[in-house]
Design a protein around this nucleic acid. Structure first.
Lengths: 342, 342
DNA sequence: ACCGCCTTTTAAACCGGTTCAAGTCCCGGT
DNA sequence: ACCGGGACTTGAACCGGTTTAAAAGGCGGT
């Protein structure tokens, strides 16, 4: 296996200096066409590709962006958001030959992970996902001078560029849909309150109830997990006046909730209506099929990547507001049970 | 924001040469303890971290490994294997400060993606997952001189180090479990035949039937998707003699299959037993809960990463055989319906 | 023949580390 | 007083690109 060719080899073969080869490669003006041609064919002949590391060293750019996943390992596989989100990122950055550096960390080591990423200059910028209230990361990336994009957290006072999708309209739609079906006792099973998006969804549910002139509903934590959703559902069904409809923070807890309700002998949607969030692939295949809210994580990824690239290149970028999620009405929602039927 | 310190700054502050700083950093023997101390505290004081790119350039190692995900974008989110697998990889490589470079590609562009990864020398080695029959990648990485580990594909004639988990025993167990419950007509809904692991599971099912002295069963393609699983299930139920049990290539198609069966008026497991594969988080929360086969993708990731690191460092490594998956018996399997009850 | 100017090309410094061959010191042995 | 050798240290080359300042070449005008 021969040593791989360097720019010097190409220069020699083309009979020019290394500088010229570099100019041609980066198609900088000021090189005679004939020379360009000679250089290109020499490069081609030798099968030369510029070395990333050498380039990174002299340009100071890693040509890679970083994504830190700070979830408990056992939760990692449950969220279909990330794979799709990453696919969206890839579709943008691969166009310019950039790469995606993935780091996983325990939720606690997050800050350390970002620090290392920045110290190593392994990436030119990072995505901040799963933003929490009082999240240390916006301050951290500012301190580190690391270009970053906040994904999904609306933080009006932050100077961090944001790619946002407002979950509130679709949650309000979901509640409205239930109200139209006659429901008046609509509970909520929330995700972890520290997440901006989890809290926002819950607030939207509460707001929608108020808008409909309904009393405050019951909200219980479901932790975005199946177990949590099941537990919360059991608790809700044990209430003196159980809800006739439950809105869940995500599909995972909604599905678990449906199982719990059915185990308790309820028929869905006759006795209980259920709404999820995410539209996971299985949502069309539960029984009944799951009414849920569908966003487009691939588009999130694309938008976030575009914003980050612009941020890296120009030091600034505009906030992006994505099209809101849509309500997908399936079989798990139906008319409120006639009073006293239970 | 001050320019970040270089090794020269540290050297100057410590009153030594750059070479000495480098030696201390890499704790090479032959540096006086007092000097080491001086260098370290100088580095600390300046907040110096060696630059990855500079290091990569002079050592020729990128200190990163690559994972290429070649799935249709819409399928990416459905498989809990990858996130957990990646978490396993991370847990190993982050110990040495290495990184994980993620590339996604359409199934067709796969080879191109590996080529680029190798040409850029962005990674020191790669994982080959989802191996197919006649997969071009083993040959490719050999040609490129790129260290690689085959994950999950048993290819006895390959000289590629392999981290393997034999799915066959657990599938045979599943079939045996069904046979013990009295089933004699056990069908299979398979994943795409081009995948080594999909084919292997199906063969294990067929073998187990033979071992039990049963006639050949019916196998239909389910493509590892919900839709495919649903379609295959409908077709199986429409057979003149429908199966009393169905084994699926993965949980996704199994869950969809359960929904189809229930829609057709069958009670599970009374009229039909179902077995999945993967043990996705939701498997405990379907109704009935899903009997399935559980492997440990995090361990796969760990083992694969360890093997790859060794491969990168020593040019060779032993094959690894992981503990087989286990059968998790839940509510979707039960005694065969009494003859003629349908 | 000389000059200025524009186009094209190049030498050399630089990015920030690693590494090897060649020092420098110091000490004990003769 | 001189020598050999081990323990430390260092100068300088090197990794493979980019970039700047300056040189070289060509050409029309006077």
């Amino acid at each position: 296996m021969a040593r791989r060719p360097t720019i010097a080899d190409v220069a020699e073969l083309a009979g020019v200096s290394r500088a010229t080869v570099s100019f041609v490669l980066n198609n900088r003006p000021g090189v005679a066409l004939a020379t360009q041609e000679r250089v290109r064919s020499a490069a081609e002949k030798l099968g030369w590709t510029p070395s990333r590391s050498a380039r990174a060293l002299s340009t100071g750019r890693a040509r890679a962006v970083g994504l830190v996943l700070a979830r408990e390992p056992e939760l990692i596989g449950t969220d279909p958001f990330y794979p799709a989100f990453m696919a969206g990122i890839e579709s943008v950055i691969s166009e310019t030959g950039d790469g995606l550096m993935l780091q996983m960390s325990r939720p606690g080591d997050e800050v350390e992970t970002y620090r290392r990423l920045a110290a190593d200059r392994r990436v030119d910028g990072v995505f901040l996902t799963d933003l929490r209230l009082d999240d240390p990361r916006p301050g951290l990336v500012a301190e580190l001078g690391l270009p970053a994009i906040a994904v999904g957290g609306i933080e009006s006072d932050r100077d961090l560029p944001t790619v946002n999708l407002d979950d509130r309209p679709v949650v309000r739609n979901a509640v409205r849909h239930l109200v139209e079906l006659g429901h008046r006792n609509i509970a909520y099973v929330a995700g972890p309150e520290e997440f901006v998006h989890a809290r926002r969804r819950r607030e939207a549910w509460a707001d929608a109830l108020a808008e409909a002139g309904l009393p405050r509903g019951t909200s219980l934590p479901g932790g975005f997990t199946a177990e949590g959703g099941a537990r919360a559902t059991r608790a809700l069904l044990d209430l003196p006046t159980p809800p006739t409809a439950i809105v869940y923070g995500n599909d995972l807890s909604a599905t678990a909730g449906m199982a719990v309700a059915q185990d308790a002998g309820l028929r869905l949607p006759d006795d209980l209506s259920v709404v999820g969030f995410d539209d996971v692939p299985l949502a069309s295949w539960t029984s009944p099929t799951l009414t849920t809210c569908r966003a487009n994580p691939v588009l999130w990824g694309r938008a976030a990547a575009q914003a980050l690239v612009e941020m890296i290149e120009h030091g600034t970028t505009a906030d992006v507001e994505l099209d809101p999620a849509t309500l997908v009405i399936r079989g798990s929602t139906g008319p409120v049970p006639v009073r006293g039927s239970r």
